[in-house]
Write a protein that binds this DNA or RNA. Structure first.
Lengths: 238, 238
DNA sequence: CACGAAAATTGGTCTAGGCCAAAATGATGG
DNA sequence: CCATCATTTTGGCCTAGACCAATTTTCGTG
């Protein structure tokens, strides 16, 4: 006989906790039983099994691929300190961070971006779209908008491997203050394609406005991070 | 005839976007058609409708209550700057922030908390559990652990209405540096009960370690914020 | 008119199963 | 021994409908 409280919990949630106990001591990569097997084993429907597994995938505890199966995910170690440069910072944790450049272009500022960068709408600004990788895995999709003349930006970013390094070394632009906003977002088709996550997976949506020492905004960035692999760290004076 | 790309999208996602266009100009509180009506109207099953609506609820675009219906949610205005005090800060945006104290107690530090606060395990520390409210709505569940002698903490926190104010005014403890980590988490039974969210809704899990000017850690806080109502803002020097 | 009980409405959970697509597996021919 | 193709396995998406619980609405009664 169950306690009333336990009985009031949704069945999929009870199953989710049971699967958790199944995998808590398992090595990453270990296959768990198939959805059909779990449904039979726990006397439930496959729909309910999928709901339980779906949440564990969202939380980064399981990974699954069609045709292969569902297996224990590696732990959420990607602990990136978002202070200055993503690249510099990851190295200090023994992680190999990289960025794959998707697009570097110049375009006229739309009204919203122009307002954020404190330029006239229509002013030519730079757009840098990248995929951030940690240990080879895609972790974030990032689109940065930059004000000011930045000749040959595509080349310098590619060479430096880091946008902040290029700004500092090649253009003598130092970003000394940033304002980050963090909120949740669910993965849509774009994130599914670019970041190898499932539809509807929780993501961290981060907006950053970067200022030079004289208070001029020069960088406006929108980033979408995988919620199942990423932990955002900010240390600051109050 | 549809484009192949559009046809490849899951049906529930297409429906989700259609519902979005339905509600984008609607006032908060406006009821949308019932799930059964939408299923018939769009020639789909109720399961698919529920998946589409479920994501919109997770994103804070819709609210729903059993027996009542599904309606347009108020916008995600709760823009809380997490710099110093939640209380002080919300006021600057014209929001009425409050905290409902659930529990204030003294207990011996467990090993993990002791390590974070740099005290010996077993040392008596304070525990302050609160529900943060903005404009009357529960927004976050927060458990703070504090080191040091803090006589009559329950009373002072209740009187000041703000933990940080009590520390500053009554105990002359100033927190001058904080380290926040932010990650995603899915709502479980605790959050459903305390914060009035749905099971599995995306939440922001925030850990904060607060230091005094001489570098002593004195505050360790774990907070769970509603992902559909909250936006975390951090402005910092680099 | 006010109140409370009954009925209808609406979201909440779950089942059983079908069809598809990707990956792994195994058979087959060079 | 290896490459190629068909088969099987596994997750991905969807349907149709049952039953429950919370809420609202309706309606009868005092």
């Amino acid at each position: 006989m169950e306690t009333p409280a336990a009985a009031a919990l949704p069945k999929y949630y009870v199953l989710k906790e049971q699967i958790l106990t199944l995998i808590e001591d398992a090595a990453p990569g270990t296959l768990i039983p198939t959805e059909r097997a779990l449904a039979e084993q726990y006397g439930t429907s496959r729909t309910t099994v999928r709901q339980a597994i779906g949440e564990l995938v969202s939380e980064g505890r399981l990974d699954r691929t069609q045709g292969r199966g569902t297996y224990v995910a590696p732990p959420k170690v990607t602990h990136v300190r978002q202070l200055t440069s993503f690249t510099d910072d990851a190295a200090s944790q023994g992680l190999t961070a990289a960025a794959r450049i998707v697009d570097v272009s110049v375009l006229p500022a739309d009204p919203a971006t122009a307002r954020r960068l404190a330029v006239e709408p229509g002013t030519e600004i730079h757009r840098v779209e990248r995929i951030r990788l940690v240990d080879g895995e895609p972790l974030a999709h990032e689109v940065a908008f930059l004000a000011g003349p930045l000749p040959d930006l595509a080349r310098t970013v590619a060479e430096r491997g880091s946008l902040y390094a290029a700004l500092r070394e090649d253009y003598e632009i130092r970003i000394s203050e940033v304002e980050d906003t963090v909120e949740t977002k669910l993965a849509g088709p774009a994130e599914v394609q670019l970041l190898d996550v499932e539809m509807g997976a929780p993501m961290l949506l981060v907006h950053r406005l970067g200022f030079t020492p004289d208070g001029q905004p020069v960088e406006w960035t929108e980033s979408v991070f995988r919620g199942d692999r990423f932990r955002f760290v900010a240390r600051m004076h109050v």
